[in-house]
Nucleic acid binder design. Structure first.
Lengths: 246, 246
DNA sequence: ACTGGCGAATTGGTCCGATGACTTGGCCGA
DNA sequence: TCGGCCAAGTCATCGGACCAATTCGCCAGT
């Protein structure tokens, strides 16, 4: 090994060395990201084998595996057992579902902030949907509303609730926006917020709010839709903030 | 691709085994996340050693390292050589700078969508800032405006530009919102968008847009601030969409 | 008794080799 | 021609070894 002699004073701050930066694994991560951004790797394409990549970058297979795993977790790569490692389609959903994880592990105060972000995004998404939603999507919304109306099981209610919102965000015609909002509304996130709220008269009120959103969409009224969605999320938000002051 | 033979072929669909699901490494990731959400691990706390964790979960150290690396990349853990593995402060910035990566590797069409998200968020953030910004922050904005006015070097201009927006998003008082917007405005992202736009008369126009935002903030006019910010981002957005149709 | 530096123990970082599990595609036989 | 079997390719996991950085206590010098 011909590494640097132990004499230079360490300067841990400036990121002046993008290639030599940090650990070997980090270098591998950057290398793969660079290959994608520079077009050497296109969505869906298969990468060389772990061994070849490791040799090519001059690192061990273990380190290369860590790099691949890291990029897998954030949705850039996807490794299929026995087949190979592939670049994902790099669709919004692939990359942004990490958001769900963030929502899962964020401490309570951060939760309120994330809910505010969701309110902003979802109200805008609903306004967009008012202009772009199709007839079949409106029909879907009606079905989900009926399901919520007749559901006794909270589980079923929640599922229809999520489907309702999902249909709207998809109708907004911005996949990235939809993916982010969905991440902020992820299963455990909502479960955490709802927990303990069921004893209140939340269900009828929620149904009413949903109905208001639906009517605004039917009338293709973006401003009404925005207001209704903001009020809907805002209600949860306000309740959560109240919870925090204890 | 022949269809299924009469028998065999298990039913690998439903994710009926959340604990046994997927790979060993995945199990380790979920285990650590669970430890955090359940409060067994608090922000800043040190984890057991890799070796101990591996033994405790009944897996090899290699797999455990992959899990730790994965959680490190998304900002949940932080490992210090020679010292140990620690939970981050779980602040918004730690968790959401993954957004920058998403913006970096997203293909062009997705870029327009992300820019639309930024427009939505930044306009709302600016409106919030109009109500909450402090006198000293307003003074900072003035300094950044002057810097932009006198800067000849595009590099310097861009730095002041980013600082300007950063001050505003921070003034909005929502760290999560600020972190997301900053991720969407990350270095390479803006560099990519700007590239080739400099030959146009973009700088004077940008300065003017910034000045308009600044005045709205000085007047503490949320609606004017929202409109000015939306127009500012929207200008870039529109230009990018034009670029896409080639 | 206090201070300063040195070194051993601890711990993450990297590498290597081996084995198991899964996929794929071609070969072989009915 | 068709269908199943087999072998090569590849990821998944494991266990061990050594290197590098940090940390902290011991010890010598003052």
């Amino acid at each position: 090994m011909a590494t640097t002699p132990p004499e230079t004073v360490p300067e841990p701050e400036a990121d002046t060395a993008p290639l030599k930066g940090g650990s070997v694994t980090q270098r591998a991560i950057e290398a793969i990201k660079a290959m994608i951004t520079e077009g050497n790797l296109t969505p869906g394409q298969r990468l060389p084998t772990e061994r070849d990549l490791a040799v090519h970058l001059g690192i061990s297979r273990s380190s290369m595996r860590e790099a691949i795993r890291a990029l897998t977790v954030i949705g850039i790569l996807e490794s299929r057992h026995g087949s190979g490692v592939y670049v994902t389609n790099l669709e919004a959903g692939d990359l942004l579902d990490t958001f769900g994880v963030v929502a899962e592990i964020s401490p309570k105060p951060r939760l309120a902030e994330l809910l505010e972000v969701r309110r902003i995004l979802e109200s805008s998404a609903t306004a967009l949907a008012a202009a772009r939603i199709s007839a079949s999507q409106l029909a879907q919304l009606a079905v989900h509303l009926d399901t919520m109306r007749e559901a006794e099981d909270p589980e079923e209610f929640l599922a229809a609730d999520m489907a309702f919102h999902r249909t709207i965000t998809q109708a907004a015609g911005n996949e990235a926006l939809a993916a982010i909002v969905e991440g902020l509304s992820s299963r455990t996130f909502r479960a955490r917020v709802r927990r303990g709220r069921q004893e209140a008269d939340a269900f009828p009120r929620t149904r009413e709010e949903h109905t208001r959103i639906y009517r605004a969409l039917v009338n293709r009224d973006p401003e009404a839709a925005r207001a209704a969605a903001a009020a809907h999320v805002g209600a949860v938000e306000e309740w959560l903030r109240g919870q925090l002051e204890e």
